[in-house]
Design a protein around this nucleic acid. Structure first.
Lengths: 342, 342
DNA sequence: TTTGAAAAGGTAAACGTTTACCTAAAAAGA
DNA sequence: TCTTTTTAGGTAAACGTTTACCTTTTCAAA
């Protein structure tokens, strides 16, 4: 039965059931009133038998809704985005919304091109993430002013204006990592920073500095390096740090860096955490699967995805969120268990 | 300038430039002939100034092309899919195609619902993956018969019929893992299988058995366990194996299992590879970041993504691929370097 | 019996494009 | 000069829906 991808239209159903397309449309959309139960049954039966499926394009043309949301990310590989997508997708699906995935490759030109082509009819809303310091928000601001639903994720530009933004607890993470290590007795804590031009990397570092200060520790530039958010850079940075020493613990600005650092540490025969304690940021499964398990601070990407979903759906439903910043709290994980505020 | 998400249509341009919509359409689509250079310049200028962007829905309604491809995956968390998406997305973008991401959660009902709603006008093609043994391919076969572009990924049902399928080197992987370990002198090789109802997990196991036979080794059920493709199950399985012993090496059906196994091994104080050698399958960054680095067999997900992209684009362009199976070769990685056929 | 409201359903415009087919003017050829 | 061809451009239908606004029928109340 049921020719599926077939070209059966509402017109076919109409002529088959001897009614107008209007009536068919009403029945299929379960619009209250305007037809009898008998007619309804007849149309529903025909639709079922012919495997009718509405042409979403045609519908969108008149309703101005496509039930599609685009999400632009700089690089799909970041583990954070996996969880984020899962949370977002699950939330949107509840409202029959689907996710359009766009990889901007951290290229502002690509980003602009994507946005321009998507926002004119194809998607009902857009979620824009970035790792890039060269944020170009004018286009987003313009869209927002025209009441087109836009959410930014992890953007920190001066000029976000009235954009609704969702951010993770970068600052908290840096601070919590220090607090945790301090509570374990460490007084000289090294830090491997993220990408040089990434704003969220700087914020994690600022959190680290704030943590030091709160604990009454002196910051020491000689035990700080850059790690580019990659495994290799993390390993390299750690190797350099180990040459000079002068610390008993190290924090990596993300898990990849942290694992690289662990590699470097273990290569020298030192043991974790006996000789050097390690804490990661932006918890992924990586630190759980590692032997030994590494403490890491979770940005709760899944929850971030849900929050972003809530925001975009509100905007799509006409609510004006205006300038608002949602910041997800970070949570420290030790051995698979979340640890209360440290 | 340039009101972006605005409602400026081809009609606005037409009246502004004192031409018909037909002419505007011709100019904007760079159709050869039908207008003078002067007219072209005038229209282009107006389009630029007003920030015109075509309504993709309206266009699709008449061209029957949306430049969208849907990809259905059972669970976005599998690392394989990240690389796969990246490869696929990069390839499709070359042709201005975008990716629609759908998470089926291994639920055949969800899968069917997605497919039905997407294939009527919304997407030009569909890529369907699964981990599930309960493959329901009738719908896909129907679509395929109606010449709607469908590619299956990692499906192994009896009834694939004329569907074009892309598969990874599951069998090869099992075989190669055994060969590698044999070449290192191992004669008793344990295996931790994947999900019980996953066909690709079975194939990896069959490859393992074939590898044993090719090396003249006796299969031994007592050193085989199930690992469910998860870290925890892998750890659990390894713990059981270690109690009885009787092997010098172990193969995990995926990296998560393998890492779980490593965890269990190292917990007992044994060393890798001095006491027990370990090989993973479905190489992810996990085995690279581990200390020690674990040998793993790469399914080359990025390349699989490209291959799938090539297939779906051919079909979208009217080529009939028919029943064809593309199988990506596996590659063994040791310490970040690929190793020639073992 | 009349009145009027409610129920059932139809008509046609609208959404923003593309495109097959037509026309008028200009250029080229004879 | 007359004919033909080319160029430039217009007209209107089509794509598959939704929906505002009608019309007709039914049925209950007065």
């Amino acid at each position: 039965m049921a020719k599926t991808g077939s070209r059966v239209t509402i017109k076919d159903l109409a002529s088959m059931c001897d009614v107008s397309t209007a009536t068919v449309s009403r029945v299929l959309n379960h619009i209250q009133g305007g037809y009898s139960g008998e007619t309804e049954a007849r149309i529903l039966k025909a639709a079922e038998e012919l495997g009718y499926a509405p042409n979403l394009m045609a519908r969108s043309l008149v309703t101005k809704k496509t039930n599609l949301v685009a999400v632009l990310v700089p690089d799909i590989h970041y583990y954070f985005f996996q969880e984020f997508f899962a949370g977002l997708e699950a939330y949107l699906n509840k409202f029959s919304y689907r996710l359009l995935l766009c990889n901007t490759q951290e290229d502002p030109r690509q980003e602009e091109q994507f946005i321009r082509s998507l926002c004119n009819g194809l998607v009902d809303g857009i979620i824009v993430s970035t790792l890039n310091s060269r944020e170009e928000n004018e286009l987003l601001i313009e869209l927002n002013e025209e009441h087109f639903p836009v959410i930014t994720l992890e953007r920190y530009g001066e000029e976000l204006r009235d954009l609704c933004s969702v951010q993770v607890g970068n600052f908290d993470a840096g601070r919590m990592a220090v607090n945790y290590l301090y509570s374990k007795g460490h007084r000289k804590i090294a830090f491997i920073r993220g990408k040089r031009d990434a704003r969220n990397a700087d914020i994690r570092y600022e959190g680290y500095l704030a943590g030091l200060e709160a604990c009454g520790l002196q910051p020491d530039e000689s035990i700080v390096r850059y790690g580019d958010y990659t495994f290799e850079a993390g390993r390299q940075a750690m190797s350099e740090l180990l040459e000079n020493g002068g610390f008993t613990a190290v924090i990596g600005a993300n898990d990849l860096i942290t694992l690289g650092a662990c590699k470097a540490i273990m290569k020298t025969g030192r043991r974790i955490p006996a000789d050097i304690s390690v804490v990661g940021i932006d918890k992924t499964i990586l630190t759980d699967t590692h032997e030994p398990t590494i403490v890491s601070i979770d940005f709760c990407a899944h929850q971030v995805g849900i929050t972003v979903g809530e925001c975009i759906m509100s905007m799509i439903n006409g609510e004006s969120l205006g300038k608002r910043i949602f910041r997800q709290r970070s949570v420290l994980f030790e051995d698979g268990k979340s640890v209360r505020e440290v």
